[in-house]
Amino acid sequence: MTTSSWLRATARTIAIVLGLALGVSACTALPGDGPWMGGAQGTSTEALPFDVIDLTPTTVVGYRVQAVDKPSTTGSLSAGLRVSVAPGDTLKVRIFERYAGNIFPTVSTQASDLGVQRVAEDGTISVPFVGSVQVAGLDLPQIERRIVQQLGNKAQDPEVIVEFDTVRGQTVMVAGDVKKPGRISLLEGVRSVLDAINQAGGPNGIQGATSSANALQVVVRRQGQVILTIQFSDLLAGGDIPVQKNDEIVVRVNTRVYTVLGAVQKSGNVELSKHDLSLLEALGNVGGLADARANKTGVYVFRMGDLLTNPTARARVFRLDLFQPVSIFVAQQFGVQPRDVIYVTNAPLYEYDKALTAIYRTFSIIGIGRGTLPITTTF
């Protein structure tokens, strides 16, 4: 075989190998490293199925880390809970008079108890010497004053004491992922949703762990309507509200995660550790960018639109250039949300290095390298 023939054959082989190597490198680069972001580099997004937003000190204002929103219709937890009587409750009624010899005994007499009175379906109780008393919707002091009014001049300076015997209507239901699900009496100092959950033994397996608290959601239903949906960690952070009788409180697992892909130290799903997690903290949770291969001008956050409340909402891609010093402050302000995908692109030189490495390995496989030239030639 002549030298020229060998060179031509070798050239054809190299061309085939180069084509195969580049094809292999192109095919194997995408799944492990994420999408090619060249299509999002332009400023026009009319042809894209998402909006591209450059994160700057001006644009980040609308996406800053948000504090826990306190429900505006919660009322005041410090004002105390007003427990009103409902049908099915049973009450103990005692009436005293200041002087002996009248209808009712004096305070020093033990025979003042008029027995247990059950609140009828029409909201009334029947008190001896008083008659029918409408009590539904009233608290205990109001019932006492009403009985005094209805006694009129039948008693001299009467003292009326009304207490709960059993409370069927003065409860809230706590269900779901708690240690002791069931009905909780409002008469045991329960004023808020958090009080009720604590009275039920607290969430299963929480024991004060913040990470577990972020994985639980609390739903409060009142008269068949959901009035509050909140993460348990946000409830602890100030989102508590007062409860009313017959409220239903459900504690359920709702793990919130974000995903990190690309040129980072550790990719994968990461639990959203707190309500106000920033982009800088999210990157820190995975060890930061991989210095050897990360493109610091290509940090992206993919966020789906609000499909539940606004099905026509477009997805958004936020782009951050960490080569700019101000971007560190921007990353501290940008709030990460559940289901966000953070993607760090590879540096261009790293992509070229991958292609050359694939070519070298291919040459090594087929034996083309040093020492392959023929020793003798024939003309």
Results as ranks from 00 to 15, higher is better:
344 V>I: 04
87 P>F: 00
222 R>Y: 10
53 I>Q: 08
185 S>Q: 05
3 T>L: 06
227 I>C: 15
126 S>K: 10
64 R>P: 06
159 E>R: 09
73 T>V: 06
86 A>S: 10
29 A>S: 11
15 A>L: 12
105 P>V: 07
203 P>H: 04
87 P>R: 02
94 R>H: 06
369 G>R: 10
312 T>A: 15
119 V>D: 14
94 R>A: 15
178 V>K: 02
355 A>H: 10
209 A>I: 13
25 S>C: 02
196 A>P: 01
261 L>I: 07
322 L>F: 03
147 I>V: 09
91 L>D: 12
28 T>S: 14
79 A>P: 09
265 Q>F: 05
166 T>V: 04
269 N>T: 12
47 A>Y: 04
182 G>M: 01
298 G>R: 15
358 A>G: 03
290 A>L: 10
156 Q>S: 13
325 P>H: 07
68 V>G: 00
85 V>S: 11
261 L>V: 07
195 D>I: 04
46 E>A: 13
344 V>Y: 08
120 A>G: 15
331 A>W: 05
312 T>K: 12
244 Q>A: 12
372 T>W: 02
224 G>Q: 04
264 V>P: 05
375 I>S: 08
248 E>G: 06
109 T>W: 03
240 D>F: 01
158 P>Q: 05
85 V>W: 01
299 V>E: 12
171 T>I: 02
270 V>K: 14
286 V>C: 00
61 V>Y: 11
328 I>Q: 04
106 T>K: 07
227 I>D: 15
212 S>V: 09
125 I>F: 11
121 E>K: 12
148 V>H: 09
264 V>F: 06
161 I>N: 11
107 V>L: 05
131 G>Q: 04
302 F>Y: 05
288 G>D: 03
126 S>V: 13
69 D>Q: 14
297 T>F: 11
133 V>L: 08
8 R>G: 01
167 V>P: 05
95 I>R: 09
312 T>L: 12
22 L>E: 14
191 R>Q: 08
234 D>Y: 01
316 R>E: 14
238 G>K: 05
85 V>G: 06
8 R>P: 00
88 G>N: 00
302 F>R: 01
278 S>Q: 13
35 P>S: 05
98 R>S: 15
141 P>E: 07
165 D>F: 15
341 V>T: 06
367 G>F: 08
5 S>D: 05
53 I>C: 09
240 D>K: 01
45 T>C: 08
363 F>K: 00
4 S>D: 03
188 E>H: 13
132 S>Q: 11
190 V>F: 09
191 R>S: 15
342 I>K: 08
135 V>W: 07
119 V>I: 15
24 V>R: 00
31 P>I: 09
262 G>M: 05
185 S>P: 09
51 D>Q: 08
178 V>D: 12
298 G>I: 04
263 A>F: 03
209 A>Y: 10
141 P>Q: 00
171 T>R: 13
33 D>S: 14
292 A>G: 08
287 G>N: 08
237 A>H: 02
263 A>E: 14
287 G>P: 07
292 A>S: 15
77 L>V: 10
51 D>M: 06
110 Q>G: 15
5 S>K: 05
9 A>G: 01
12 R>W: 11
57 P>M: 02
32 G>H: 04
155 A>L: 09
9 A>T: 10
206 I>A: 14
284 G>L: 00
117 Q>R: 11
127 V>F: 06
80 G>C: 12
105 P>E: 02
197 I>F: 10
341 V>N: 11
